[in-house]
Amino acid sequence: MEIPNIVERWSGEVTEVTLGATKEEGGTRKKIIKLGGANCIPYIDFEGCPGHRPVIAMDVLDIVPEEWPEVLLEPFKEVVSSPREWAKKCVEEYGADLICLKLDSVHPDKGNKSAEEAVKTVQSVLQAVEVPLIIWGCDDPRRDNEVMPRVSQAATGERCLLASATQDNYKTLAALCLADGHNLVTQAPVDVNIQKQVNILVTDTGFPVDRIVMFQTTGALGYGIEYVYSIQERERLAALSGDKWLALPILCNVGYESWRAKEAKARDEEAPGWGLARERGPLWETITAVTLLQSGADILRMLHPKAVKAVKKQIEALYTNNA
């Protein structure tokens, strides 16, 4: 008996977004990254094209992280006071596909540093690495609206990914990205409707839809991952069904969220019986990342090199092990 072909075909496809610009394109990147392009459910690749591979962005902070547990700080302890060196190490030693530079130092509670200093940091990181850059503000709308214009301008032409535009604060960032040739992260509070609303508002300002990456404030394993998972899954299904406002790559903040979990950061003496902290923390981050990959994540922001290594291996396996 012939087995019927039950392959599902979808009408939509995730929009392709390019990060980074080479010299020919007006930037200085040696490596560029393409996201999106999938026209099937994640990893059901016998039904279509899975699109470009997910990438890992490693976080680099412009302040010395104070609350990081020892296990997390250890791999970076020689470079935490130099974003430039830190970024270099992430790319050269730990294999980061791109760098997410988090400008925490401009936050009023974390140093309130000037825009000039932020610009210097961005420039030094751009010089230090050849991969594309995500530039993430300090999440204080007032300060971000002051600092990001300078930062954006300093990185003109590099086709960075700037973050993040929210429903209440999107105009400045959208205008900058449009003017300076960057891509834009739009953020929503784990709500597919609001994500779409922000995307519509941003494009209403004249910003092209194929330069948007979506971000649903991530929840880690044990801390709401199932909500984020199903929201991202719905975004992907909407994309495949032809909703162009949701047919965009998805970013997840895996590292930061995972390491907030007490299961990840508790020291050995605080949690006897939970396993060794040096295994436990990276594992928590790895499982969070691998889970969210299944929902269709395109960019994973990550922290621990061990977790990065494990997830890279997993991605490799997902894309090659079809036998």
């Binding site: 409707n193 779409k196 209403d204 300002t205 004249g206 910003f207 839809v209 909703d243």
Partner: peptide, 20 residues
């Protein structure tokens, strides 16, 4: 949120918005 449900209104509104 779904422009498909209000195509005409979206069209009317986009006249006042810069073209994508």
């Amino acid at each position: 949120t779904n422009p498909d449900e209000f195509p005409t209104v979206y069209q009317e509104l986009s006249r006042g918005v810069k073209a994508m």
